[in-house]
């Protein structure tokens, strides 16, 4: 079998914060009625974490669930388990109205870590990045400069950022530009 190749093959930048392309990660888009117990069970069955509420992310290790929209949930899992995850969802939801797709190769994932991680993202997104406006457990789909992206916090100083694979280099470049040493603002 061919080896998975992530968008930037683990590119790393160290400046104000550390920006790291996080390598292959399993992602399954599950669309359906999120109020339905069946859909919830299918998602939690693959991810092994509690079902998140509106605008939340529940992540544990390399598994997790992220609330994307009122009818879409993102299931995170190890890269090599995504196919089996889709199969498990298909089996559980057969006959109901839903859609499950393995989108692992369609996206890129970055880890932004360091004391100024909030500040680096605040330079790029219109979202409220203050500690009161965004905290671990929250999930936000928004834009970074000119492209759509989403992020959540693993802890107080570590963000995970996902974007489309086609704009991975762009997102890496703007993150590194925002993290250029000497460009700190010190707002938060």
């Amino acid at each position: 079998m061919s080896e998975p190749v992530s968008a930037l093959q683990g590119a790393i930048f160290e400046g104000l914060v550390k920006v790291e392309e996080a390598g292959p990660c399993g992602m399954i888009t599950l669309r359906g009625d999120l109020a339905s117990t069946q859909v919830k069970t299918a998602a939690t069955g693959v991810a092994g974490v509690d079902f998140p509420g509106q605008g939340e992310a529940n992540c544990a290790g390399d598994k997790g669930l992220c609330w994307m929209s009122p009818d879409e949930i993102l299931v995170l899992c190890p890269y090599d388990q995504a196919g089996a995850g889709v199969a498990a969802i298909d089996k559980l939801l057969a006959g109901t109205h839903y859609l499950a797709t393995n989108v692992s190769d369609a996206r890129a994932r970055f880890v932004v870590s360091g004391l100024d991680a909030r500040e680096v993202l605040a330079k790029l997104t219109p979202a409220d990045m203050s500690p009161a406006g965004f905290a671990p457990g929250r999930f936000r789909r928004t834009r970074l400069a000119q492209v759509p992206a989403a992020f959540w916090m693993r802890d107080e100083h570590m963000f995970e950022v996902i974007c489309f694979r086609s704009v991975a280099q762009y997102v890496f470049d703007i993150l590194t530009a925002a993290a250029t040493p000497g460009s700190e603002v010190g707002f938060f």
Binding site: Q54, G55, S69, P70, P126, A127, D128, R140, R141, T142, R143
Partner: peptide
């Protein structure tokens, strides 16, 4: 009204 976010114009 769907995701409960106060979205900036540039996000819309």
């Amino acid at each position: 009204p769907y995701c409960g976010v106060d979205a900036d114009e540039t996000e819309l």
